[in-house]
Design a protein around this nucleic acid. Sequence first.
DNA 1: ACTAAAGTAGGAAATATTTCCTAGCATCCA
DNA 2: TGGATGCTAGGAAATATTTCCTACTTTAGT
Lengths: 135, 135
Amino acid sequence: MKVEKPGKKESLEPTRSELEILQVLWQHGPNTVRFVNDQLNEQKREVNYASTLKLMQIMVEKGLLVRDEKAVKHVYSPISEENKTKGLLLDKFVDSLFNGSVSSLMVHLLDNKHASQQELDAIQELLKKAKKDIK
Amino acid sequence: MKVEKPGKKESLEPTRSELEILQVLWQHGPNTVRFVNDQLNEQKREVNYASTLKLMQIMVEKGLLVRDEKAVKHVYSPISEENKTKGLLLDKFVDSLFNGSVSSLMVHLLDNKHASQQELDAIQELLKKAKKDIK
DNA sequence: ACTAAAGTAGGAAATATTTCCTAGCATCCA
DNA sequence: TGGATGCTAGGAAATATTTCCTACTTTAGT
């Protein structure tokens, strides 16, 4: 598979670890390695500071993050806005697992997630709006 | 990160390449390495036969596939049924990117996928059913 | 001022995943 | 029968990703 390697063909596709870091930055805004590392340890799993640092450096090289070095404590920010990245990942996920079929995904989603009444209502509203937008 | 490595903590979580193989088997049913390899080359990307074979052997070891060796041409089947695996992956995806919020996912889905009128109708039906099931 | 703690960095090392190579066996056809 | 083709296998090698180690600088506290 010289031509297209998973996670390599689309060089902007974050690895699993990178995605975890992006999530912290999406949630809390631009931040230092220390902060991200602490959050990961709190919310996800045990991660060594130097590991987090290294990953974030690589993400800068890959064009996923940008680093502000004005202070001694460097502040990292995602380059691409959250919605864009999530959209890309969602696209890929639906294409990958459901052949691009939104309704096919919905079948599984409603089956497995046991969405609450509130969520179903909210989704219904979204649907109405989407249908209106099409017309 | 000694405790939980991406793709390792949940040993049943297929890697990207493995998922491609699973998809072929879901789509066409139990099959030989040759068949899977041809399909991958047709639909996805250039993959060397021996690479596909190796991956499928590993998937057997990981408990993702089972192999019927009665004939010279071994036939591989997924162990876990399609819906279960997709459900797991979907769960993880929604939790991972959308903090488990189905409606949050829907916002992006409807934004990005530009679902057709037909699909929106179909989703609406699914929604009705889901709401009925809750009551 | 000194020391401990905290921040950054490069790169080696480890681990995970995939590709490639070689070899043996089975099948098919001239 | 012999050769070509196809199937399987083990494991080395390559590649991707992550962890770890060491070192330097800065900051903070006594």
